[in-house]
Design a protein around this nucleic acid. Structure first.
Length: 359
DNA sequence: TTTGTATGTGAAG
DNA sequence: TTCACCTACAAAG
């Protein structure tokens, strides 16, 4: 599910796996053969994300002793995904043993599973420590990044190209502030918020359309759009210039919390415990970390407080069907007022909202 | 085996 | 506003 939070997680994983390492770069599928040729044998200096864009810096050995800087730019689009495998030596705890496969970061397991090996037609098990071998690429692998201890395969990206530093800067120039970056990609998070508010208010384009415009705010997709607007009680069809600055500031702050939670957990959970189907009795996770901290304890269905359990902070404890207020809930009763959730196609994308709670 | 679906983007009309 | 495109997987026939 590649909205901005996913891409930031991927950047972190690639960083942890490969930063500072010389990599064998190839394109098993062939469609990135020329780019792989440029990067093969180069050192991956680090990976970073800006919104949904993933940038990996490589130092490519030059003709003399020096090296020149190149950036691998990847945009996952709707179907793109990275697959990781390795000998388990790297410390990427958040990616190990992920309970489910997700678009955007599927099979995040870093110890090669026997089934993977079998599927690749390899020996069922590596010979021993230090003799790990990467599984055969599965599917249409555009790019393979290979180190002695780990491999990362990319399939189905919308964009995958090698850029010069200037070209990378040109891409970033077209992007709005990113709520996940510590400074929002601006001089400060406050400056980023001000830029977001001013940008939305200078246009009469609906706030719903503007929220998924990457030039307005980078990293927000269809889910965060729908959920942030619901949490703000704001009608998606309202023209941007008619939205009070204070409301937009609140939306920005909420996006910062929601996206950062998503990047930390790998899941999008926007519902507050009291708005889940069971009233939050089973688990208190989700909403934002701030909200959890303020809550301090869990209120049961019977209205009693109980001690927070470990699973309360685990967003995986919130079932998928309770994670959202309106996204993909068309026709179902609004979690707050009970009115059926609306759906409408706006600019080619499905828009979900509550006609009563959002005005 | 075919069809449908998906959290996205950008070019063409 | 419509279309093409990148791919995997589940459901339908």
């Amino acid at each position: 599910m590649p909205e901005g939070h996913t891409v930031h997680r991927l950047a972190r994983t690639l960083d942890q796996l490969f930063a500072g390492r010389r990599l064998a770069v190839s394109s098993p599928q062939g469609r990135f053969a020329a780019g792989a040729d440029v990067l093969d044998g180069a050192t991956l200096v680090g990976a970073e994300a800006w919104g949904k864009q993933l940038f990996c810096r490589f130092d490519v050995p030059g003709p003399d002793a020096g090296a020149y800087e190149r950036w691998l730019r990847v945009h996952l689009g709707l179907y793109g995904a990275w697959t990781f495998a390795g000998d388990g030596s790297a410390d990427v705890a958040h990616a190990i043993g992920a309970p489910r496969r997700r678009v955007g970061e599927r099979e995040t397991t870093l110890s090669s599973e026997p089934s993977d090996q079998a599927a690749g037609g390899r020996d069922p098990r590596p010979a021993g420590p230090g003799e790990w071998t990467a599984p055969e690429p599965r599917g249409a692998v555009r790019v393979r990044l290979l180190a002695p201890h780990a491999v990362a395969d990319l399939t189905g990206p919308t964009a995958c190209e090698v850029l010069t530093p200037d070209e990378k800067a040109a891409v970033e120039d077209r992007l709005g502030p990113d709520p996940i970056r510590p400074d929002g990609g601006h001089d400060s998070l406050e400056a980023a918020r001000a830029a977001f508010v001013a940008r939305v208010r200078r246009s009469r384009v609906t706030v719903g359309q503007q929220l998924i415009d990457q030039a307005v705010v980078a990293g927000v997709g269809n889910i965060y759009r729908a959920e942030a607007l619901f949490r703000a009680g704001l009608d998606p069809l309202r023209p941007g210039r008619d939205v009070a600055a204070a409301v937009l500031e609140q939306i920005w702050d909420d996006l910062v919390a929601l996206l950062r939670d998503g990047a930390a957990s790998g899941r999008i959970v926007t519902t507050r415990p009291e708005h889940r189907d069971d009233g939050g009795a089973a688990h208190g996770g989700g909403a934002t970390g701030d909200e959890q901290a303020r809550a301090g304890a869990v209120v049961t269905a019977a209205g009693r407080r109980r001690t927070r359990q470990n699973t309360d902070d685990d967003p995986d404890a919130v079932p998928a069907h309770e994670a959202f207020y309106v996204y993909h809930r068309e026709g179902l009763p609004c979690r707050v007022c009970g009115t059926p959730v609306l759906i409408e196609e706006l600019a080619g994308r499905n828009l979900f909202w509550c006609g009563v709670c959002q005005t």
